[in-house]
Design a protein around this nucleic acid. Sequence first.
DNA 1: CTGATTTGACCATA
DNA 2: TATGGTCAAATCAG
Length: 380
Amino acid sequence: MGTCILPQNLSKRLIKELIQGKEMATKLQLMLHDHNNKPLVEENIGFGSVSSSSPSSAEELASKILNSFSQTLSVVTGYNNDNTINNIIHSNSSDQTSQVNPHDQASHCDDPSSDDYGAESKIKRSSHGIKDRRGCYKRRKNSQSWTTTVSTLEDGQAWRKYGQKEILNAEYPRAYFRCTRKYDQGCRATRQVQQIQDNPKLYQTTYIGEHTCKNILKPPQMIIKDSDLDNNLMNVITSTTILEEVKPIISSSITTNDTSSLSDDHHNKLSLDHHHHHNNSDHEIINLWPSELKDLELSDPSMGLLSSSLGVSASNNDDHDIVSIMFSFGDRTINTTNCSTSGTNSHSLDMDEFVDTSIEFRSCDFEFDDNNEFCLLGSL
DNA sequence: CTGATTTGACCATA
DNA sequence: TATGGTCAAATCAG
């Protein structure tokens, strides 16, 4: 697989929408400010026992939304300028990592009774005289795989380590992980992790196969209807602006032309994941937040990491392009949609789920009028 | 044959 | 008890 390239029309649409999102966030910030000519402050904004860096006011929240838009915009524009996301290497070609395919197997171990991952039947070879079936596996070929360089072993997914091996000409051993749902759900996703020789603080992680289990925590997803985009999409844009806590653990390096955007006052680190999920024939669904965040939230749901994310989705077909951006905070979401059809544009910012006892955004809509001006419908 | 990958049993920990 | 790491052994693949 080659370098991911966002199609130009889609990237333009994406950037445009991000700009509009940024403008909306700016106006939202102003609105919150103008309400009483001073920032609104809520004692309880619904983050539970938030950490010190969680937003403590609607204004701060708006500010962070704005910042997230800015950061995401920087990444998108930077990415599309030179396409240098070096830490994501798509590979279906053969390297030292074996490529695997669930349906392309040949093994003498095709004992029907061994199907469905019955390995956990706990039959002890010693007590039953049954031949040890260790290592009796089905190596797969041509399965989708991708390699990324990360600074942590955590990726938010449930892996179980099943092996470690010294690799020839490599200073560090390679660790093998499988999905914890392998046996109860037959999920065949695996990953391999190996410290990078030149920089042991970084890990080269190779994901092999896709998760087919349902219990893994899934991020918001980008759905690309145009199957032609399959191989050349930048698939994840995640901003962690809101999540100051996770800065130390998110340091997947991203190279863009706009390096300043990655080292601003907020020290925001951005992480790109590449997790394709081909759910059906013509949709590509892409995870939108770094898996590091998922894991962190699992360990401490009060952090609200999963729900503090900027999702960007785009779809593209013959009739129209749709780009939507969704913010969610806890159980509240802001979804912006830009639908362009045959030269007409409409924009809306739906906040119907943005319900909070403190800020009461219930049933209010934001829209762009004919002049493309942002306006508020309903009332706070 | 050799190196890489996976299994299964065992063990540690929460 | 459930979950996950360790590791020797079995097996795959070149």
